[in-house]
């Protein structure tokens, strides 16, 4: 297969602190991520997967190594370029939703579509995550699963090229978690957005095109699933 990778990391390291307090969160990561695939990044707490995600999303800079987003060298980008990168290319989904409490569902999405280049209408994004009847509710009036789906709608409304999800079901029960994963899977399938999901929950591996096993700050091995299991069938 001769595809150009969206992300390309080579010998990526990230070191926090110095001396005896030194922590090597990333210890030489080599990785390529491609258009349209759904990748599950699996690893235990402290394995460095969140650090990797932060580096991919332009929130943090590696200590050494190469990290490219297409032709953009993320290791050399300045603050403004990173902001621009996040604004135009990346959709984030967080474990704790991080909605703006003072804005309604529609406004939380609208906040992003206001600044994006080619967004979809907020209503369309919310309908994609099956929240067509919750437009004018404030976060406090929504359940956890609904809040996370608003967060997904917010992330996808700008038609990002990559969707980065950090433990998106971490704060949710199983049933609600499945609804959220279904929404993410649907976005990936229908919009073809490269989607990276971080989790420590091995069950979710089956929904992915590729599963990257992460351990001690580097890629331990990569598994390719011949077929993506339907999310509704996941059990944990």
């Amino acid at each position: 297969m001769d595809r150009k990778p969206v992300f390309r990391a080579k010998g990526l390291t990230k070191v926090y602190g110095a001396g005896t307090a030194e922590v090597r969160a990333l210890a030489g990561v080599d990785l390529e991520l491609f258009d349209g695939e759904l990748v599950v990044l699996l690893g235990q707490s402290g394995s460095g997967k969140t650090t990797l995600l932060n580096n991919l999303g332009g929130l943090d800079k590696p200590t050494s190594g190469e990290l490219w987003y297409r032709d953009l060298d993320l290791t050399a980008a300045n603050e403004d370029q990173l902001t621009q990168f996040r604004r135009e290319r990346v959709g984030f989904i967080f474990q704790f939703y991080n909605l703006i409490p003072s804005l309604t569902a529609r406004e939380n999405v609208g906040l992003i579509t206001e600044i994006a280049r080619d967004p979809m209408p907020p209503e369309t994004a919310l309908e994609l995550v099956n929240l067509g009847n919750r437009f004018d509710h404030f976060p406090a009036q929504l359940s956890g699963g609904e809040q996370q789906r608003v967060a997904i709608a917010r992330a996808i409304a700008k038609r990002p090229e990559v969707l980065l999800c950090d433990e998106p079901t971490g704060a949710l029960d199983v049933r609600t978690g499945i609804v959220v994963l279904e929404a993410i899977e649907r976005v990936n399938r229908e919009l073809g957005t490269l989607t990276v999901i971080i989790t420590h929950n091995a069950i979710m591996a089956d929904m992915a095109d590729r599963v990257i096993f992460f351990m001690d700050g580097h890629v331990h091995h990569i598994r390719e699933n011949a077929v993506r299991a339907p999310v509704s069938g996941l059990k944990w």
Binding site: T83, R86, R87, E88, F92, F94, N98, I100, I115, A116
Partner: peptide, 16 residues
């Protein structure tokens, strides 16, 4: 801080 950091993460510039 949290709200503002979120805005930064999802692509708002410092000025915004």
């Amino acid at each position: 801080a949290r709200e503002l950091a979120t805005l930064r993460v999802i692509g708002f510039s410092r000025r915004e």
